[in-house]
Design a protein around this nucleic acid. Structure first.
Lengths: 232, 232
DNA sequence: ACCTGAACACCGTTCAAGT
DNA sequence: ACCTGAACACCGTTCAAGT
């Protein structure tokens, strides 16, 4: 390693925007949105609070940046060079978002928020462009492309948001066991509802117990895709 | 007024849970989730912070209670005695939620959260029961009722969440003019995207400018309903 | 240009004390 | 049973000062 550097006039930049975002994502994954505090960040990066605001601005901006980083990475995952069908491509994007939220439950709230408030950002544009390109090939007439893409995106966001499990539970293990216990408790409670007032809930309590979120999500996508082919 | 009361052993209860929730909704409507602070509540109700926690528990519980109150009220609006078709009934529920979120933008985030975390509460059960009852009449086979109802609810939540405009903007008037300015800015930015990289965004920028959220929402519902009739 | 960290103005929750 | 309000342990942001 060469130790002779010419006039290091400015201090070694030891902290970067990327580093802060990375640490933020780790905190968010571990403890949900409440766990992302400036002080936790300061300790983890052993720096001062001013340095953080210098690099990423306000906490809210950091949350946006973290969202953007994670979503962009999720959308880039596209290894297979197979030129998929339009439906396949839509499913790929949808599942990428589904999985991203499964890995980062705090994303659910933030993703919705970002799309609403920042229609110009790479998150909104990325998702719409990627999905929207397919709707023409699906047989949707040009005048309805915006409606079609919006319907798909809205469905995906809604479904994906509902599959963000017990976010920010600091009590650790929200594993498969937890998940099952949660569903068991829910279906038990549904069974106790008055049957005459809640006939539907009683009818589906069995289906609810052994459904698979991911499969159900794909079913929903298929339903929307099917409906879109009839959009004139 | 009779002034002679027999031993009012306990003080007049001057503060009620309902009053607190009502004040909370007003604060939320006026300034978004950030405006609901214990101190703001304390001042508005001229009481102490302890009284609030006594009646409604923690801030988070109050947010849940406010959500429940508003959603329940929205779902109860059912004046016409006309026994609508299944599709009509679904549209009624969907629009009730749409309008509730238009009036109370803070609901968007909270509604999702409540449905995820409290599948037993009146919000989740109310929405599912009301919508789910219709899917049988739609021609969905019984074994698919849960999938069908979930698809509808997920679409509705996703769409409705996206139509919660600039929530919690304390700068007042988020009126029609603001809304238009917002869309104009967005479409201007979309037009500036590189046409070769974002062909879809360019194709729809005109549609985006003069679309109507509510109509688009109904289109989406129609798409999903259509898809559901083919679900086997 | 980059970083420090004290200071500030908030925040929600708790709890001993009063009625 | 209901309410008060001080005390506490947090929080994000700012900013003069250092390098």
């Amino acid at each position: 390693m060469t130790t002779r550097a010419r006039r290091p006039q400015r201090r070694n930049q030891v902290l970067s925007r990327e580093q802060i975002i990375e640490a933020a994502v780790e905190l968010l994954d571990a403890g949900g949105e409440g766990a992302l505090t400036v002080r936790a960040l300061v300790e983890r990066l052993s720096t001062g609070s001013g340095a953080i605001s210098y690099h990423v601005g306000k906490r809210d901006d950091l949350l946006d940046a973290a969202t953007e980083t994670v979503v962009t990475a999720a959308l880039e995952t596209k290894p297979g060079g197979v030129p998929a069908t339009p439906a396949d491509e839509i499913r790929t994007v949808a599942l990428a978002l589904f999985d991203a939220i499964a890995d980062h439950p705090w994303l659910a709230t933030r993703l919705t928020r970002q799309i609403v408030r920042n229609p110009v950002g790479p998150v909104t544009v990325g998702i719409f462009e990627r999905i929207g390109r397919q709707v023409g090939a699906l047989g949707v007439p040009r005048a309805r492309w915006f409606d079609a893409a919006s319907t798909l995106v809205h469905y995906i966001l809604g479904a994906v948001g509902q599959n963000a499990r017990i976010e920010g539970d600091p009590s650790g293990l929200d594993t498969e066991a937890d998940r099952e216990a949660f569903f068991d408790a829910a279906s038990a409670a549904w069974e106790e509802l008055a049957a005459e007032d809640y006939p539907f809930m009683h009818a589906i309590v069995g289906q609810m117990k052994d459904h698979d979120d991911r499969e159900q999500f794909l079913t929903g996508i298929a339903v929307v895709l099917d409906g879109l082919t009839h959009l004139r």
